[in-house]
Every structure is written in C-alpha cells, then in structure tokens.
Amino acid sequence: MSDALFNALAAAHHSGDDLTFTRLCEENAQWIAANWVTWSRVPPELREQMKADPAQLQRSGQLVFRIAAELDLIGYRQPMDHMRGATGPSPVVRFENTVHEARQRAENGEHEECRSLLLDAIGELEGNAGAEAILAQGHVELAMADARLGDLPSAIDHLHTARDLEQRAGHVYHLTSASLLDAFTVALRRDPETIAVRDTIAHAQMLSDIGQFAESNAELARLARSDHYLGKVYGLTGLNHFRLGDLAAAHDYTSRAVAECERAGDRAGVTIYTTNLRAIERTS
C-alpha cells in the first residue's frame, strides 16, 4: 500500500493534479501520519542513486514537504513537526493563517493591508526547501491584491514568479496562475494610461542613453502623478541626477526607487537600485 500511495501522490504532484493530490492526502492522512517516519524515508538503494542526481533528490524533497504541508493543513501535525524538529505552529500553518487574514482584509476593502500581510507571509516562508508550490499560491494571492490596487504590471510580475515556482515544484501547468496571467496581460496591453506611461519611460530611457539627462528627467517628471512603474521612474531619475553631478537628488530618487520596489515586492529592482545607491554613497 505504501509504495502505491507514494507513487500516486508523486504522479498527481508532478502532473499538477491538485485535486487528486489533496484527495489522496485527506483519504490516507491518518495512515500517513502514523507511519510517517518510516514511510517518508528514502530507501538505501534509491539514496545512492539520488546522490548522483541532485535534481531527483530535490524533487523527492519537494514532494515529501508538500505531503507534510497538506497534512499539516488538515490537522495532522506529526509529519511537519518531524521535519522541522520543533514544536509550535509550522511555517505552512503560519503562512495559511496570514493568507486567510489577508483575504479578510481584502473583503473589507483594506487592500494595502492585505498586500502587506501577503508580502510578510511570503518572506517568512521563502528559503524552506520544498515550499515552492505553497509560495506560488502566495504570489497568485499577491497578484490579485496588486490588481485590486490597479497595479497590473506588478500583478503580472508576481504571476510570472508563481509560474516559475510551480514549474520548479513539478507543476507543468496550473490553471489559476496561467489564466490570470493571460487576463492581466491582455488588460495591461489595452490600458491607455499604462501604454502612455510605458511609452514615456521608453522615450526617457532613450534620452538618457544618448546623454540628454536633463531632458530625460523632464520626460519622467510628467509621470509624477502616475502609480505605474514608479520604481523605474524614480530609479532612472536618480541615475540621471547622478550623471548630472547632483548627488543629493540622485540619492533621494534612488532611495525612493528602492522603497517603491520593496513595496511592490520587486526583488530584482531592490537589488539594482540598492547597488546604485551604494555607488552614489561611495562617490559622495
């Protein structure tokens, strides 16, 4: 029974069949929890094979973590406690509790608070081996929060992150993230304000690239009241000021770019503009 069950769970996990995966966990939860220590252990003959194939070892770890997380959510704590070697609420339970609170905030119209809670939940769970599928869920929730706030570019970024996490977790296709990504991308292409902002930033970038830094900033100043792509707007404005020799303004705008990217959960932007900020500080 144990091998057949594990193989069935593995097949559902790798094919992205979440309904079957959840059903199998629920139907067999008591047996899995009672036999977890021996059942989840990799047989010695497979362990040697996995040493030569790190990708297989990672996939196995992701599957075992996901089974433990699924059981954790329906009240069977032993598997997750065994994996963590600790007591108290597991990272997955804390994540789900925070997501639940975020959804309630959204229902009450508190969309910024919802978004902040989701960012905290994702930040706490990141780094847990095998948590990719659950983190993907968090980024889908965050994308919907961004969409409610009218920030479609950020929503699309989070959906791309969700898709990457799903693929790393072995899910080739996930209906929710894929359908939302298609819908938001189409909406963004049709949004006149977003199109105008993108065109203005592109023109400002071109001016900066050819050394017309003041003219580039004049273009960017037109976007001061826009809520779209603010990290990029502040970052390019700061870079132009740096090239013009105005280090105080460069520091101010680049700091704003870092803060905006942190607010938006844009880790690539945070890295880029933090590096720029350090370069400005070294020059000052």
Rank of each mutant, 00 (worst) to 15 (best):
L180K: 12
D146A: 12
E132S: 10
E110M: 08
A129W: 06
E107I: 12
G88P: 02
R148G: 07
E101T: 14
L181N: 05
A162L: 01
A155M: 02
E166K: 10
T98M: 11
E112S: 15
L181Y: 11
L159D: 01
E113C: 10
L181G: 01
V172S: 10
A196R: 13
A187E: 13
T194H: 13
L152P: 03
V99H: 09
N108T: 07
S116E: 07
A129K: 10
D191R: 15
G88R: 08
L135V: 01
A178R: 11
L142N: 02
D182G: 14
D191S: 14
A147R: 15
V92H: 05
T161M: 07
A143K: 04
I122T: 01
R115I: 03
I122P: 00
A183W: 07
G130D: 10
A169Y: 07
E132D: 05
M144H: 14
R115L: 05
Q167H: 10
L188G: 04
L181V: 03
F95M: 01
H139R: 13
E193L: 07
T194D: 12
R189W: 07
H111D: 12
G88C: 02
Q137G: 04
P153G: 00
H171I: 13
T194F: 08
F95Y: 09
A147C: 08
V92M: 04
L181T: 03
V99A: 06
T194V: 14
G138T: 09
G130A: 08
E193P: 06
V92I: 12
T194S: 15
N128Y: 15
L180I: 08
E96T: 13
E124H: 14
P89F: 03
R190P: 00
A147T: 11
A102H: 08
D157S: 13
F95G: 01
V140P: 03
S116W: 13
A183L: 02
D157M: 12
P153E: 00
A155R: 06
A162S: 04
E141Q: 14
S179N: 14
H174T: 15
E113Q: 15
V186A: 12
L125P: 03
A136L: 11
L152Q: 07
H158K: 12
L125V: 00
H174W: 13
N108S: 09
E126P: 00
V92T: 09
C114P: 01
Q104V: 08
T176M: 11
A178M: 06
V197G: 04
N97R: 13
S154R: 14
E107P: 02
D146Q: 08
T185I: 05
